[in-house]
């Protein structure tokens, strides 16, 4: 569905079912240079298991109008504005990579409005290699190639995609190419510049799950641990789990395992 958020038309994918605000709401947030479609399987899974699902294209991404927001706090505020726009008073947040920082910041701002939090491929802070930021600004093809190299496990780089007949690197490259010039660079700079993650994490009180890919080169499991440790006030303590064999692009590489993990945790 397309709705205005802060006077800008926003594309929101709802997992193949009409959004029902009477159901528990889950918001899935994509990462840098992406759009809602990275969450297709998880969104459909949740929409068919009793949730109202919202998967927005962030401003300036995918089919959403506007320009990309320049910092994580602004993205988090925008996300809460989106929740207001659809009349959602309580929600569960799930974010991937940059989307996980947005989810973390939004959960801290929203307090009890956020009931559960899932951070997929998440570290805080999230430093981005200068060579990648430079490439995203000056040589997008090179940036896309670097991201593809670092996003997938060694096996997934060459193939054997979970989705029959689909090339994971090819799909990811085309998805990044579709975003307007400057979007990826803006997103990566926002990730790199947000240094408040560990401090913000202490403000999180809802149950929180961190999901790591065993072969993730972007946000390796060892780098996730400090964020997990910083979530000291998360109800029941923050939990960390690892998806065997998966790289950073867990939604596509291990769709079933990730959907199961999210589904079980959100119940």
């Amino acid at each position: 569905m397309d709705i205005p958020v802060n006077h800008q038309l926003t594309r929101i994918y709802t997992g193949g079912r009409s959004f029902d605000r009477e159901l528990p709401t889950v918001v899935l947030i994509h990462g840098a240079g992406h759009d809602h479609s990275v969450w297709n399987y998880q969104a459909r899974h949740l929409a068919h298991h009793g949730y109202g699902v919202l998967v927005p294209d962030l401003p300036g991404h995918g089919a959403s109008h506007g320009t990309p927001l320049r910092d994580i706090d602004a993205m988090a505020s925008w996300l809460l504005d989106l929740a207001d726009a659809v009349g959602c008073t309580r929600m569960r947040l799930v974010g991937h990579s940059m989307g996980s920082l947005i989810a973390l910041a939004a959960a801290a701002k929203a307090g009890d409005q956020v009931e559960r939090l899932v951070l997929v491929g998440s570290v805080a802070p999230m430093p981005v290699a200068p060579v990648l930021i430079d490439a995203a600004r000056d040589d997008r093809d090179r940036a896309h190639a670097m991201i593809n190299q670092w996003s997938y496990s060694p096996a997934a780089q060459l193939g054997a995609s979970a989705t029959p007949g689909t090339s994971l690197p090819g799909t990811n490259q085309r998805l990044m190419e579709r975003q307007p010039a400057g979007v990826l660079a803006t997103d990566l700079q926002a990730c790199n510049a947000w240094l408040d993650g560990l401090e913000v994490a202490a403000a999180i009180r809802c149950p929180t799950l961190l999901v790591c890919g065993e072969r993730d080169q972007m946000t390796p499991a060892r780098a996730v641990k400090p964020l997990c440790d910083a979530l000291v006030n998360a109800a029941g303590g923050a939990r960390m789990m690892t998806l065997p064999g998966a790289g950073h692009a867990m939604m596509a590489e291990s769709p079933r395992a990730l959907s199961d993990a999210i589904g079980k945790f959100l119940k």
Partner: peptide, 22 residues
């Protein structure tokens, strides 16, 4: 429901064909 990928019937997809396709 296309909640997860996989093979249902070989007219639509098949693991050997999927290697060729990819």
């Amino acid at each position: 429901n296309l909640e997860q990928p996989g093979h249902v019937y070989s007219r639509i997809s098949n693991p050997t064909n999927a290697v060729l396709e990819e």
